[in-house]
Structure formats: structure tokens, C-alpha cells
Simulated scan of single mutants.
Amino acid sequence: MKKLKFPSLFLTGLCLSGSLLFSSCEKEPKSTPAPVAPTPPGAKGPYEHGVFVINEGNTLGAISYYNPSSKVVRKDIFQDENNRPVGQFLQSMAVHNEKAYLVAGGSKKLEIVDANTFKSIGVISGLEIPRYFITSGNKGYLTDYVTYSGNGQVNIIDLNTNTITKTITVGKLPELMAIVENKLYITNSADNFISVINLTTETAEAPITIGQGPSSLVVDANKKLWVLCGSSYGTDPGSLAQVDPVTGAVERNFPILARSASPQDLAINGQKNRLYFTLDNKIYSMGISDAALPATPLVDRGTKGFYGLGVDPQENIIYGAYAPDFSSEGKVIRYNPGGAAIDSFNVSVGPNGFVFK
């Protein structure tokens, strides 16, 4: 359920505009997972450090875990630790204060676990179509479509009591969020604006008009917002825009034209000075000061597209998620900052994103 409907509807290729050129395909070496090692003495748990892969699943989702040092891969750690699945159509995960928050959209819930042991410690249920979660202090913010045809909302959650204290209406199909200077910025993937919420007063402010279909955003080293836009079915021109969150002005806008589907999965490196996104089965990268979109892709997978993207903030290793279908295992390919494939490993069904811890 990463895009706008259930995952099987979104295994489509992405087309690139004429200004972005093709390059040759990369070979992808494989890695052999090592046996599961015991928890090191003094560690808080077996998942204290590593890479978590969010898998939507065919119906039941899963969190896979990868240890870059030992090459250990565990395909469903929530099931391993709790003897039950995490829920239907796992959409996203966030970590805050030694807790992990797992958004299971099909189960209409936010599952809370110990981030180091992955033992369940709570559930917030009664949601509608929850999508993404972000935190600030003792508050959490969860986007919820509510409906596929009308306005969505942001649920404000007290993290001390795990209760929803307020809901604020935003645009249609709200997705990812970012926080800058005590304001929350929300992408609305079926509208042409970003919603803004003042976190002090917990009230909506004037939205920021942007390109059609904003779906992902990041904050750079200069505290500027970068927003990736484009309708889910490729009916509107896509764009990558830089926004000043103080004034709401769109300072730079790079159009991404003619394609069959949208650019996706905007990510940023650990130094917050280099952007990444996927388009037409490729990964593109550009510096935040670059004057134009890149002419060639950093990674080209030919006919095999990416369903998720992440960049390790410590090592700047690029992680690409591949979902061949929604009935078989997915795959993660790791690339060095120059775009050369390092290795790959299998995960659960429908990998769509990463959390680095």
C-alpha cells in the first residue's frame, strides 16, 4: 500500500523526461547471510544497531532486519519476537526514544515495540488508513488518508499515554512529513499543496502551493525543504522543488516531464547535502546546490524497478528495495556512494523503505 492503493497495483515502471538520459545496467553481487548471532554482552537487545526494512506484504506485513557488519538477515523480526504478525499492509516505521512505531494501514493501527528487542509494548487502534509517523518531543504525528476521495488528517498523539489528543484536517491523501522550526509540513499526494501545522498552537497555518501530487520531502543542511511531486498515474508534470519554510516561497523548481508514472522516494544523505530519488527503474542523485537535474542516473536497473529507497546516514550506502511481485520475497541491493553495487540480500514480501539505527 505504498502508493495510493494496495501494493499489487503499483508494480509499474517509471518513465524519464528527455533531459534525463539512460545509462547501462549494473550487476548486483549477492551476499550469503551469516547465522544469527547471540546478543552481545551489554547490548540493549539484538536490534540495537542495524537496518530495518519495511515490507508491506501481500496481506500481512513484516519488518526485516539486516546487520551490515555480520551480514545477518532476519526476515520477520516482529513475528520472531511476538509469535504473531505485525498486521496488514505494513506501511512505515519510525524510531524515537528506544521505541519503534509500526504503521499497519490494513489493520488500522500503530503498533509500538521496544526498538532494541522488538517486543510489543502497546497498540493505538481505531485509525482509518494510517500512513506515516513522525515525532517531536513527547508528541507523535500520524498521517491518515481517512478516505480515498476526501481530505485526510494528522493525528496528534501523546507518547506518554499513547492516546490521540487531537486531529487536524489536511489535504487529500496525506503522506510523508517533516519538521522545521516547530512547524510540521505535510505532503498531500492528491492535491497541489503542502499543509502546515504550528506545533506550539497545534493549529493549521496557510498551506504552501507546490506542484501537483507532493508525496515525499526532506530537510537539507540549510533547513530548506525539498519536495518531490508528481501524480501517481503520471498525468501531471512532476517536479523537484526547493522551498523556504520560513516564507513559504518555492525558491527553485526542477520540472520532470513526460513519463508513465511519478518520481518517488526522495531521500537525503547523512550530511544533508545530496538528494536521491527513483525514476524509470533508476536512482538519480544531485547536490542541493546543483543548478539542474542530473543528466544521467547514478544507478540503472534496466527493467527492474525500485519500490523503495534509503541512504545510510553514517556510511552514505544506498539501499534500493525491489519487489518483483507481491507473492514472493523481495530483495535489497546495496550501492556505494558512487552507484556501484556492493551486495544484495532477500527480505520479506513487498519491501518499500528503510530505517537506519
Rank of each mutant, 00 (worst) to 15 (best):
I54R: 13
L102H: 00
I256M: 13
K331N: 12
D280L: 06
Y185G: 02
R259Y: 13
I333Y: 11
K166S: 11
L293R: 08
S216D: 01
D265F: 00
F6L: 12
M177H: 04
F306E: 02
N198Y: 06
V113N: 00
K183Q: 15
A295V: 08
P7E: 09
T169S: 10
P40R: 00
S69D: 15
P35V: 14
V170Q: 02
V311S: 07
L228Y: 02
S70Q: 08
A115L: 08
L90W: 09
P351E: 01
E111S: 14
F254P: 00
D144S: 09
P130V: 11
L279I: 01
Y319L: 10
L266R: 01
S285G: 13
G320K: 00
A261G: 05
P40F: 07
S120R: 08
I63G: 10
G140N: 05
N253M: 11
I318M: 04
D244T: 10
N97F: 06
L102W: 05
T32W: 05
G234M: 07
I210C: 04
G338V: 02
N182Y: 06
G234K: 01
G150V: 00
N273I: 09
P33S: 14
A204Q: 03
R274I: 07
D191H: 10
F10W: 06
K304C: 09
G42K: 00
P174M: 11
F345A: 02
R334F: 05
I164K: 00
R259I: 15
A94S: 12
P294E: 05
K27V: 05
E26F: 11
R252F: 12
G320Y: 05
V332R: 05
Y276K: 02
D114G: 06
L309F: 00
F193Y: 10
I268S: 05
L184W: 13
L293W: 00
T247M: 14
G137I: 06
I197E: 02
P207S: 08
H96W: 12
Y307R: 03
L184G: 08
N58W: 00
D325H: 09
K75M: 14
L4V: 14
P245L: 09
T201Q: 13
Y148D: 11
T39W: 04
E128S: 15
L159E: 08
P214W: 03
S260K: 15
K223Q: 14
T39K: 06
Y335A: 01
S260P: 06
L199T: 04
A37L: 14
A206E: 15
G87L: 13
K3H: 15
K2Y: 13
F52E: 09
K71Q: 07
G57R: 04
I77N: 02
T278C: 07
G230A: 06
T39M: 00
G45V: 09
P313T: 10
L293A: 06
L184M: 06
T303P: 07
F133Y: 12
L257I: 11
P337K: 10
S327W: 02
